[in-house]
Design a protein around this nucleic acid. Structure first.
Lengths: 233, 233
DNA sequence: GAAACTCATTGGTCATACGAATTCAAGAGT
DNA sequence: ACTCTTGAATTCGTATGACCAATGAGTTTC
């Protein structure tokens, strides 16, 4: 799921990226390329490539005679999967999970409506299969297996929407669900109501009922928001 | 609005990025770093930094003994503002505008609902000001000025939602509105109905009526979708 | 025909040198 | 005392050449 920092510059990024997104170097901090190169024991060329990548994520800005300046959070490319992963691994994971879950609650219902219109027979079958998998693993402390089916389910929905922007949120949803299962709530088996909603959603898509698919996804989203205390219960 | 490729590597990116996103080098194409360096008349160091940035956007993949391979569209970081700009400047701008407008139609209503709950007095004032600006410039071929107020309006809404992910879509919305005004439809004055909806939306936010704000934004979104023939009229 | 081997190719890393922009301070002029 | 100019120090930007390491393809061997 994650990109295992290939090459030396990748290794540097896996260390520097999380440090910056975690606020270890607050916005406005100034780093020097040479110093960083020494600290990480790499050549300046490698460090420069790493800085270029951070720059393309708008995490830092490189200026002559000044150095590498950490940019304010408002500049960061928060949709970059790598940035999302770094932040979810850091201290403000809860805050991050909330932001992303609200995003999900906006996007997924519309995506589900479109999926109901455009899903192929294969996708409908996959969806049903995932839903059944969720049912089968919803009891008895099989959280990992349940998570697997849950992720697959939402991925199929997003892909079936035939909208590129929605489809690319599959990774984000996967990270959110994983983060929720591993580090957040859900110490016990998943909410049976949520499982039922997924089964019904698979039905709605199969029957091409866009409005119902959208509404069911809204209910799933409400559940996810409540889990994070974003909505009043 | 755009990043004017700073440095040599930036200049290379401004040329290579659009070429790749435009499909000039189809997925699977293999480029060689040295050849590219010669073509753009830069050193290998500079070209390597450019390739690293393209790699961080998942546009290409660099492998030993093979070269720099263009990745399939499904891998691209389509939420990267630079990638969005490159694609909007390319041949499939219409397709891109549709994807992004559908995304807007999903996100903005929810954002408006949150904005109604969280907007400060200053933001409410700004919103009203923008709406009035839109009214004032909605007639008499003042498309540029109208666009300015329209962008500002939607930016305020997204920021007032107090959700980081929504706020960062301000740039995307700006690009979509700009693209629509400059290259798409809208040869004449904007739809009066849309202007009215914006005024009402500013009202709803000021009155903290989240449900109405959400609904009004849905209507605005429907109009935007119809303009692109995504919805039946 | 399959497995092991060799080799050419390409990116990966490093070290060094020089160029260019920009900040900061010192100094001249008013 | 203040401003403007000038210069020097600093840091990134670029170029070059060398060598290393992985890997895909062709070749040999069994």
């Amino acid at each position: 799921m994650s990109t295992p920092g290939r090459g030396l510059h990748g290794h540097v990024l896996e260390s520097l990226g999380p440090a910056i997104t975690a606020g270890e170097y607050p916005p406005g901090s100034v780093l020097r390329t040479d110093e960083l190169a020494q600290r990480f024991e790499v050549s300046r060329s490698v460090m420069r490539e790493a800085v270029r990548v951070l720059e393309s994520m708008h995490l830092v800005e490189s200026r002559r005679r000044v150095g590498v300046t950490v940019l304010p959070t408002s500049e960061w490319n928060v949709y970059d999967p790598q940035v999302i992963r770094w932040r979810l691994a850091g201290a403000d994971r809860p805050r991050q999970l909330r932001s992303l879950t609200v995003l999900r609650s906006a996007v997924e219902p519309v995506a589900a409506g479109l999926a109901a219109q455009h899903a192929t027979a294969e996708e409908c079958a996959e969806l049903t299969e995932c839903a059944l998998g969720m049912v089968a693993t919803s009891r008895g402390h099989q959280l990992e297996k349940y998570l697997f089916h849950d992720i697959a389910f939402h991925r199929v929905i997003l892909n079936a929407s035939r909208n590129e922007m929605f489809a690319r949120l599959g990774d984000v949803v996967a990270e959110v669900l994983t983060g929720r299962t591993h580090h957040q709530v859900m110490f016990w088996d998943p909410d049976p109501a949520a499982v039922t909603l997924h089964v019904k959603l698979a039905e709605a898509v199969r029957e091409r009922d866009a409005a119902r698919a959208e509404e069911l996804t809204r209910e799933i989203a409400v559940g996810a928001l409540q889990e994070l205390d974003i909505l009043a219960p």
